[in-house]
Design a protein around this nucleic acid. Sequence first.
DNA 1: AAAACACGTTAGGCGTTACTAACGCATTCC
DNA 2: GGAATGCGTTAGTAACGCCTAACGTGTTTT
Lengths: 109, 109
Amino acid sequence: MFLVIDALSAAAEPTRRRILQLLASQPRTVSSIAAEFTVTRSAISQHLLLLAEVGLVTAEKVGRERIYRVVPDGLRQLQAEIDRFWTAELDLLVADAHALKSQRIERDH
Amino acid sequence: MFLVIDALSAAAEPTRRRILQLLASQPRTVSSIAAEFTVTRSAISQHLLLLAEVGLVTAEKVGRERIYRVVPDGLRQLQAEIDRFWTAELDLLVADAHALKSQRIERDH
DNA sequence: AAAACACGTTAGGCGTTACTAACGCATTCC
DNA sequence: GGAATGCGTTAGTAACGCCTAACGTGTTTT
């Protein structure tokens, strides 16, 4: 059904980002999550299935509901991927941007 | 040509991630970047155009070449988006994962 | 017990994406 | 100057992603 992709690509999608944030504060059912969005339950369900595929969430079947929760270990892997991407060089460039901004502010005063 | 998307979605794509990392260490031409990948110049060019669209890189025309470089301010925005996504709750869950891991290690010794 | 209802998933469609092939244009070489 | 080469972009295409509609299944209600 899904092509397995990496955690970062999976988590980057705007809707899935919000889903992860919601689930971070507390486990939820599909419908409960869908209530926070304009798209259908179905769409949310599929996002959750994808997130499960890459190990960022798991579902616990309770009656006819599925309680989805984030998997801490999956999050760790996601964080690791982000860290691997965000190299020291990128960090330096951001620092430069900050410096330039400060300079601009000082000049404008 | 491109639908404008957010910096995080743009940067998350695996090829574009690597492109950004390459450009972080030094500005480069399209061909120079393409040499590091298996896909064609054309594909790389399009990734660069997309990255430019969301303000993560810019091109400087020099002769028949385009020298692409990262835009520090764009990177700052990307970092801000990542930070906005990575809420305190997610951080806590990761910390839990670490704690569990330590426990497991101790138990296994 | 079965009808109505509610939950999550699967099937199918449409727009987008990521790619190669073909192109236009600038530069170099003869 | 013109042919050949090399650069980046545009044109076109197959595959993918995200969505709604239809479905299967479990649960409540009467």
